[in-house]
Design a protein around this nucleic acid. Structure first.
Lengths: 339, 339
DNA sequence: CTGAAAGCGCTTACAG
DNA sequence: CTGAAAGCGCTTACAG
């Protein structure tokens, strides 16, 4: 706050016009004459003038900023490359549409709603991106009730017709993978799902069940497992599944971070992949390609999810778009673990 | 921008005081009587009043926001867990000190300076965190010349006495690891460093050289390699080093992301780890523990680096602190790859 | 195409 | 301990 004391008034004086005119030049109002605009622009340069974003925001009631709500960062959720990739995508979208990005600073659990309310009530943002999708999410309730522009990564369990969201077709992905495994001769397909409260878990589970049904296989609750997205989950279920009396001959895992240590655990117990058990995983992170054997994994394009989420908020802010769904294609990357 | 039309004036009217008084209650000015404060607070609640952050910023010339400069996110740099972890640490620090976080949206290469200048000139932030440390960084030049509050993760190559920064003792870490390898009987220690333009590369290289010197081993330029922080680098150097006529019997690698595929590559070529060649790596990411054999790796505590960086900017902003250096301890996590 | 004026919602010396 | 007034640096109807 020193140099920056060059204001619109200084420019106006130097250019011999009114502050209004300078303002119009800044906002590229087309009704200003070329000659005047040029003169003003020259004066701005000479004075080293830069518009004060805060003042603009206050007067125009637009911040040009989008708030990003991340999961509680006290958890190790960032260890999974999903969120970093989403963030990269958001950054790309923002750099194209010219928005600034305000990061949620919720460190404690379940603080998301507070952050959302704070962002909105203190007028810090024009829109919000929710980077993950919980069942029964109070943030969604709140944002909908305020009709505040936002977009969601994932699929909402409620208000579908009002929530802008971007997602993979997780139902289809799980369905297809299940079918593929059965077609290649597998009979007992287990499913290691993630956190029950995430809508993605529900969608994939539904696709898995439908795949079994479609192929005339029974759904066996004993072959369904839930767990956190971490190494430990993988090791633990590795042991558990290995000891099963009627061991499955295929396993769909909801994340590479789980599948990698799980595969490792299997192998240390003498279980061969894919001969004894095939493994298919989600997210296609670096872990999938580095595993031994490399893991078949579903690329869900988190970068694209982030980019589209940013585009969606922008549309929500600028054009009042609501309830738009955007589907990002997934891709099954076949590797040795399921061949 | 609808409900939010409750302003400080409405509260003042309802409470029968002046706007100035309400303002002082908001900022918890101690010179307000308890009775008045209570009354005002009650009115704020009844009206659902929340202070407008933008207006506060304009009037007070403080934004309460810190800008975070990340590497160009068009690169895959986020794949490395280092930056996500740093970010988590920054978020923790910010949630404690009450700052908001504005994320850089530089997507194209070498745009960092533009982002920094934009943040400052348009008065969007009170301070800045540079999350990485390049040699000859123009951002540092600019920030120093403006005497703008900022902190750096890493060690600056210039202006040390003016730059707040937080870093591991990378010289010592590389030195110690080199010595350890030599003490355990290794004779030819190779070093696979990262990007030459990063100061961390320089520090580790210096430590490595000093380790050799200290033990009376010659520095051999043919055992020094540079590369990007990615999988490909690992595979390529795996092949190259395997083919070397006089192959090293130990290798220090500047990142697990490189070391993991490199180790894999060695093994596919029949080179045994650690028997034929010991490997020590940096960053202790999930890859280090998941590798076969697990990799000895140096935990550099990126979370802590981020947290301290946030504390440092806060001190720079609030107390004018400059040139403070903060060292975050590293820890050598010994695993099978170097035993 | 341009200007004068009011206003965005706060803060902060100054005065009492 | 509290208030009146000026001001932060812009934008935007309104008027011409």
């Amino acid at each position: 706050m020193k140099k920056n004391s060059v204001t619109i008034k200084d420019v106006a004086k130097k250019a011999g016009v009114s502050p209004s005119t300078v303002s119009r030049v800044i906002s590229q109002n087309p009704r200003i004459s070329k000659a005047t605009a040029d003169k003003v622009i020259r004066c701005m340069k000479e004075l080293g003038y830069y518009p004060n974003a805060i003042a603009r925001s206050l007067a125009s009631k637009k911040t040009g900023t989008v708030g990003i709500i991340m999961p509680t960062s006290s958890e190790d959720i960032f260890l999974n490359p999903f969120f970093p990739e989403v963030l990269r995508g958001i950054v790309k979208g923002a750099s194209q549409s010219g928005y600034d990005l305000l990061l949620s600073t919720n460190f404690e659990k379940d603080e998301e709603l507070n952050v959302v309310q704070n962002f909105i009530r203190s007028s810090k943002v024009d829109g919000i991106i929710l980077t993950f999708s919980k069942v029964n999410d109070h943030c969604i309730d709140f944002l909908c009730s305020e009709d505040f522009p936002f977009s969601l990564i994932g699929t909402p369990d409620l208000y579908k017709e009002r929530v802008n969201h971007v997602d993979n077709d997780n139902f289809m992905a799980a369905f297809q993978v299940t079918i593929d495994l059965i077609n290649s001769g597998r009979q007992k397909i287990a499913f290691l799902a993630g956190n029950k409260n995430l809508t993605v878990t529900q969608m994939r589970l539904a696709g898995y069940k439908e795949g079994l049904r479609n192929k005339g296989l029974p759904f066996d609750e004993n072959l369904l497992f839930f767990g956190d997205f971490d190494e430990e989950t993988g090791y633990q279920y590795g042991k558990i599944i290995a000891k099963l009396k009627e061991r499955p001959d295929a396993l769909i895992v909801t994340d590479d971070v789980i599948a990698f240590p799980l595969a490792k655990s299997f192998q240390s117990l003498g279980i061969k992949i894919p001969d004894d058990i095939a493994i298919v995983s989600f997210n296609n992170s670096i872990l999938a390609s580095l595993a031994t054997p490399p893991l078949t994994s579903i690329e869900i394009n988190p970068f694209k999810l982030g980019e589209e989420a940013m585009n969606l908020v922008a549309q929500a802010i600028e054009q009042g778009v609501r309830g738009k769904r955007c589907v990002v294609p997934y891709e099954i990357i076949k590797r040795k673990s399921s061949l």
